[in-house]
């Protein structure tokens, strides 16, 4: 059996000034999960290590933490896969305050979820006699997203949240998707409008941390892309994100390549004077270095082929 050093983040903000790491030597047994290992360390070596757990079966969502810098679900991760040069470093989830050791304050996560009205809002003027039925096809649209176990792993590693605590975050956007795509919900348009505001669906950077860390099939980034598709299709276009997409479509559909002189003003809006002024400094800096995109935008060769593909836009739309 291999011996592994568990380097565990320890901190009690009520009694300590700063966090520290404490090492535990642990004999690795085959087939154990990270949660099994922590439980062993806790029962045999140090009962004061604090972490959340309950089901041990990847269903309750309690045991998310960081291993070697990335969020994982402890009960769904093999310990052996984490060993790096004989060491495994365990930290609490990111983007939230530590309460004690590996236990973080999840309130920002719950608070964010509440913002998107995470419950069904059916058309109550038209109540069915029994239940609101869905076809298999309708359900499949939300099948993946309903597997979310609210573990917070995505929230922990999200890049956009790191710089903006008001950003809705991946799990919340996925939750919004769950109702936007639910055939029984009546507030689709309103939800799409709300979520297109600042700190909403267009503020996600596509870093894909969420989908990479998510232990379920929710895969938030994929859902975010679907929300954007729904917003584009529903004509919720009054924001920089949607205008950016429209501009992208226009320039690529016309010339086969992006027109970098056209897209920025198209995205901020041609009548948005402060927005346009905001683009000037970088434009001037690039001009002075001769780095500005060519003023005459050239199409790719055989651009007609691409134009022809784009001419069928509606036909190919989901």
């Amino acid at each position: 059996m291999d011996s592994v050093t568990f380097r565990i983040f320890r901190f009690d903000p009520e009694t300590e000034d700063s966090p520290r790491y404490q090492d535990y030597e642990y004999e690795l047994e085959p087939g154990v999960t990270l949660l099994n290992s922590l439980n062993t360390i806790r029962s045999k070596q140090d009962a004061t290590i604090a972490y959340r757990m309950s089901c041990g079966s990847a269903i309750c969502g309690s045991c998310a933490m960081r291993a070697n810098g990335h969020a994982v679900l402890a009960c769904k991760t093999q310990t052996s896969e984490l060993v790096k040069d004989g060491v495994i470093q365990i930290d609490p989830l990111g983007n939230m305050k530590v309460i004690h050791d590996l236990v973080v304050d999840l309130e920002p996560f719950w608070g964010s979820l509440r913002k998107v009205k995470p419950y069904l809002q059916p058309d109550t003027t038209n109540n069915p006699e029994l239940e609101r039925e869905q076809t298999q096809e309708q359900f499949l649209l939300i099948d993946d997203v309903t597997t979310c176990i609210l573990c917070g792993a995505c929230f922990s590693d999200c890049n956009a949240l790191e710089v903006d605590e008001n950003f809705l975050g991946p799990a919340t956007l996925a939750k919004a998707h769950r109702f936007i795509y639910d055939s029984r919900d009546s507030k689709t348009e309103e939800r799409l409008e709300d979520i297109s505001e600042l700190h909403g669906v267009w503020d996600c950077t596509h870093c894909a941390e969420c989908s990479t860390r998510c232990p379920t099939e929710t895969k938030p980034l994929a859902r975010i892309e679907e929300i954007r598709e729904a917003a584009m299709k529903a004509g919720v276009h009054g924001n920089n994100g949607a205008r950016h997409v429209l501009g992208f479509r226009e320039t690529v559909g016309k010339s086969g390549r992006l027109n970098e002189n056209y897209l920025p003003p198209r995205s901020v809006g041609f009548f948005n004077i402060p927005g346009l002024l905001g683009l000037l400094p970088v434009g001037i800096r690039m001009l002075m270095r001769g780095k500005n995109p060519p003023l005459i935008h050239h199409s790719i060769d055989k651009v007609d082929e691409v134009k022809k593909i784009f001419s069928r836009f509606e036909e190919y739309r989901k």
């Binding site: 596509h206 892309e225 598709e229 997409v245 992208f248 479509r249 739309r317």
Partner: peptide, 10 residues
């Protein structure tokens, strides 16, 4: 990854 947010198939 932008065009696909409008129309993945295109």
């Amino acid at each position: 990854g932008v065009v696909s947010e409008d129309n993945a198939m295109i």
